[in-house]
Design a binder for these strands. Structure first.
Ligand SMILES: [Mn+2]
Ligand SMILES: [Mn+2]
Ligand SMILES: [Mn+2]
Ligand SMILES: [Mn+2]
Lengths: 173, 173
DNA sequence: CTACTATTTTAGCCAAGGTTAACTTATTAG
DNA sequence: CTAATAAGTTAACCTTGGCTAAAATAGTAG
């Protein structure tokens, strides 16, 4: 009575297969977290994705301002690997969020808010990159992985990464 | 002649400020990577984002199949923290990619391809989660961070993470 | 000043991932 | 068997982040 149901995915089949009967010790370590906690994990990822690109943009603009004295959208486009039209639209969004300021056809600046976000992002990026290198990851790979991972490291993890890098640094001197 | 230009972002101002004059030793460590390499870093992140959700779905479906014997979209929705309508649409995409199969109004199954992706994703997820815990991150935080970071860890990094966890495990026995 | 080139913006397109509301189908209770 | 409930689908909408092609503006060279 169970097998054919499972094979077609008969929805009601679970009624006579109550949860509190499943052997507990068998899948304790591997068990699924409670539904609401699980949902909050995915929600955290979605929330990180919302700000991810904004953070990368302000970080890059800050870097360009610092290293080339100026942040032109053509350079942002080249470094991001997207078209100038895409940069134009994203910059419009950054402006509406008051992270970036600029006059039409002029290059880009950060607002106070933008500077603050850039500083935080830069610091976090540096911590993750340094950590990966301290771990033994090659520079090339570390740069790639850090660019994505940075947005998903909580403060607790960042603190631990920083401590690890520091200790590793002290150990090899 | 430089300051006013910089303040308004006058594009042409850089012509008489050639790059090869900037002091090299001052910003060597902090320097921006070459433009094309930098672009490839962001491209890698974008590429990871393309498959991220698909991976989480097939992984979750596999988990539900294993732990509850059945993967119903209402459970996927609850665990993902999204509406059933969203699940319905994403599942349509998974089906068009031949990762998932199901008949209308019936629950979900993985294809061969889907099983393979789920196995890889599960393994990678486990490596990252175990690594974070081995590092000293709390279980709660490790779960959240792993859910995002897993998609941005390259094979090289995964190998190193695994070695770290194994050594750390051996050390504390 | 005029032409040319570089840069930026705009318009129109698309896919992904989310929502709510209305509808259909399946399962269960009486 | 029928009514009620649970589950799944569909339609209509939204935002984000890509793209190309065309238009507008800025900077430079003659
Ligand atoms: Mn960054
Ligand atoms: Mn990044
Ligand atoms: Mn996962
Ligand atoms: Mn994930």
């Amino acid at each position: 009575m169970l097998l054919p149901y499972e094979q077609i995915g008969y929805i009601g089949a679970m009624t006579d297969f109550p949860n509190d009967v499943t052997p507990d010790r068998l899948c304790k370590a591997d068990a699924l977290p409670p539904s609401d906690q699980h949902a909050r994990q995915y929600a955290a990822v979605r929330s990180a994705h919302e700000t991810e690109l904004l953070e990368d943009y302000v970080e890059l603009i800050a870097d360009l301002l610092q290293h080339q004295g100026e942040a032109r959208s053509t350079d942002v486009a080249a470094r991001m690997g997207v078209s100038q039209a895409t940069v134009s639209k994203t910059v419009a969004r950054l402006k509406s969020l008051e992270l970036v300021s600029s006059k039409p056809y002029r290059s880009l600046f950060l607002t106070e808010k933008g500077e603050a976000m850039a500083a935080m992002s830069h610091q976090r990026h540096a911590i993750v990159l340094k950590f990966l290198r301290a771990l033994g990851v090659s520079d090339h790979t570390a740069r790639i992985d850090a660019e994505g991972m940075e947005h998903h490291a909580s403060q607790e993890t960042l603190d631990i990464m920083q401590r690890f890098s520091r200790e590793q640094e002290r150990g090899s001197s």
